[in-house]
């Protein structure tokens, strides 16, 4: 019995270490695939997708000079259309100085601190959402491509452990719903596979744009667990795991989700 249990644990670890999804690659579905035709039409048409308001605000911010250095994003990176193509599809990525994964929001704030000598933008602030939406828009259609080196894999394994850990008063793990019961209903709503290809998303329930971390906090509150702090290491690892799990899927930010 003990041997069997050890074998099962070994198998589970093997899966987590490989960063392999429980869902077969051919069965993966983005949130977009699960939406109704009306919501899809809303996302597809740039004049109907409310996320475009943030994209347009982000475009204006991109060339605004900021901080003590009086530099804009464009001063270093040039046009975002070319320079930022695929960047959101590669994040979270390991920051060399910190030797830790950082998401695109954190990357922007690292840039602000180091290059622009400006104060960091608060998580979920209008400006940070606008910049992330503008940057993510440049990756639309690009495949999610997380670097799968040894350093990244150790953080992916951390994220996988969080994903599979039961927590909160309902004693649920993320995997209980999104790996084991996707496609079924939770109350009236469909359970998606939770591939973060469209973030930041305009969520109709929120009536506004929000980041992946806001969405994750939402889910954790629903599990009656204490949500991790914005910008925490746990979230960075979890985001990284989710993106690695969606490796190769097409980005569709800014998404519209119910």
């Amino acid at each position: 019995m003990r041997a069997l249990r050890a074998l099962a644990a070994g198998l589970a670890l093997g899966l987590a270490a490989a960063g392999a999804a429980e869902i077969a690659p051919g069965e993966r579905r983005s949130g977009y695939d699960d939406m109704g035709p009306q919501t899809r039409a809303m996302q597809d048409d740039d004049s109907a997708n409310p996320g475009m308001f943030w994209v347009l605000d982000g475009q204006a911010l991109w060339s605004r000079k900021e901080g003590a250095a009086q530099k804009s994003c464009a001063d270093c990176h040039g046009g975002a259309e070319a320079g930022m193509k695929g960047v959101s599809a590669r994040h979270p990525a390991i920051d060399a100085a910190r030797a830790k994964p950082v998401d695109i929001e954190e990357r922007i704030n690292i840039c602000r601190a180091g290059r622009q000598q400006a104060a960091p933008l608060a998580r979920e602030s209008k400006e940070l959402l606008a910049l992330t939406a503008y940057i993510a828009r440049q990756s639309r259609g690009q495949p999610v491509s997380i670097a799968l080196d040894a350093q990244t894999r150790s953080f992916i394994a951390q994220g996988a452990a969080i994903w599979n850990r039961r927590q909160g008063q309902l004693n649920l793990s993320c995997a209980n719903c999104h790996d084991d019961n996707w496609g079924r209903k939770l109350a009236g709503a469909g359970v998606p596979q939770a591939h973060p290809t469209g973030y930041p998303v305009y969520r109709l329930e929120w009536q506004t744009l929000g980041s992946l971390q806001r969405r994750l906090r939402n889910c954790m509150t629903g599990m009656r667990a204490e949500a991790y702090e914005y910008g925490s290491e746990e979230f960075a690892a979890l985001e990284l795991y989710l993106m690695a799990r969606a490796q190769g899927m097409a980005m569709d930010a800014p998404g519209v989700r119910p």
Binding site: D45, D46, S47, A48, M52, L56
Partner: peptide, 8 residues
Amino acid sequence: MARALINV
């Protein structure tokens, strides 16, 4: 000024 998107 609020942003508006028009498609005509």
